[in-house]
């Protein structure tokens, strides 16, 4: 590839990826910005002032989104990791059915399930609560955890674990010093994925949270569409920041652990 094309490729990807984000940075500092002005005719900090005021509830929503996301990813690990291991390393009667049951939420719309679950949650008194929202976020999150980790375990050799056990290591130590380091890159990526799935949810949070559980997506959604672009842009940037941060942390695992994402490529 000539360096001209290469430069073009880097620039092109940079523009396509960066423009939708850059325009939001500009909007968040705009006070008056009308067609056909290429840049705002007046700049201002009012959107950011609103974001940092209590009225915007952005701080509170940020914490709620983070808390729910963390709970979802930790629960997904606890629930998904053993299942992924069982599916990857063992054969047993009924495996096909189990696999199908566990992975079907990835390809079958969750609309009906969420609406159905809503009624059950109202009876259980966990509608309108963070707990209910965490549980409903598990529906799309856990299958991804299983899918990614099953492919990690498929390339995993249990011999080392057995050696450790023979040498007298107990279960906890074996897991901590042998299993975990081996699966860590994959686990990091899978955890990031489940976190992001929860982080980005809108309609499930809306239905199950009933407006009472306010995550960032609940704040951003009503603002998209034009009534106040500056505020929408500022909140949108707050919504992006932790996600990009998470990518920074796991980018290396994403790049160095190619087999991990390959799990999503298994039919």
């Amino acid at each position: 590839m000539s360096s001209f094309w290469r430069g073009g490729l880097v620039g092109g990807i940079g523009v396509v990826v960066g423009l939708p984000l850059l325009v939001q940075v500009i909007w968040s500092f705009a006070f008056r910005w009308y067609f056909p002005d290429l840049l705002p005719s007046e700049w201002g900090l009012h959107a950011w002032r609103y974001v940092f005021s209590d009225s915007s509830r952005v701080g509170e929503a940020l914490l709620t989104s983070l808390g729910i996301g963390l709970a979802v990813s930790l629960l997904s690990i606890g629930i998904g990791l053993p299942a992924a291991r069982a599916l990857a390393l063992h054969d047993f009667p009924g495996k096909g059915l189990v696999e199908w049951l566990l992975l079907v939420p990835i390809v079958v719309p969750g609309v009906v399930a969420t609406m159905g679950v809503h009624l059950v949650f109202i009876h259980l008194r966990i509608a309108d609560s963070s707990l209910g929202v965490v549980l409903v976020h598990l529906i799309p999150a856990v299958p991804y955890m299983i899918l990614v980790m099953a492919s990690v375990f498929a390339n995993y050799d249990t011999a080392l674990e057995e050696t450790a056990r023979t040498l007298g290591a107990d279960a906890v130590r074996t897991f901590w010093f042998v299993t975990l380091p081996a699966i860590l890159p994959g686990l990091l990526v899978a955890t990031l994925f489940t976190f992001l799935i929860s982080w980005s949810q809108y309609v499930t949070t809306l239905l199950i949270g009933g407006g009472r559980v306010i995550t960032l997506s609940m704040l951003l959604f009503p603002l998209i569409g034009g009534s106040n672009n500056a505020t929408a842009a500022a909140i949108s940037l707050v919504f992006v920041a932790p996600a990009l941060l998470a990518l920074g942390v796991t980018a290396r695992s994403l790049a160095n652990g190619p087999s991990v994402l390959g799990g999503l490529g298994r039919p």
């Binding site: 984000l21 929408a232 990518l247």
Partner: peptide
């Protein structure tokens, strides 16, 4: 990859 669809929609 990590950017929520809502943010992309606004952009």
């Amino acid at each position: 990859i990590p950017i929520p669809h809502l943010v992309v929609a606004f952009g």
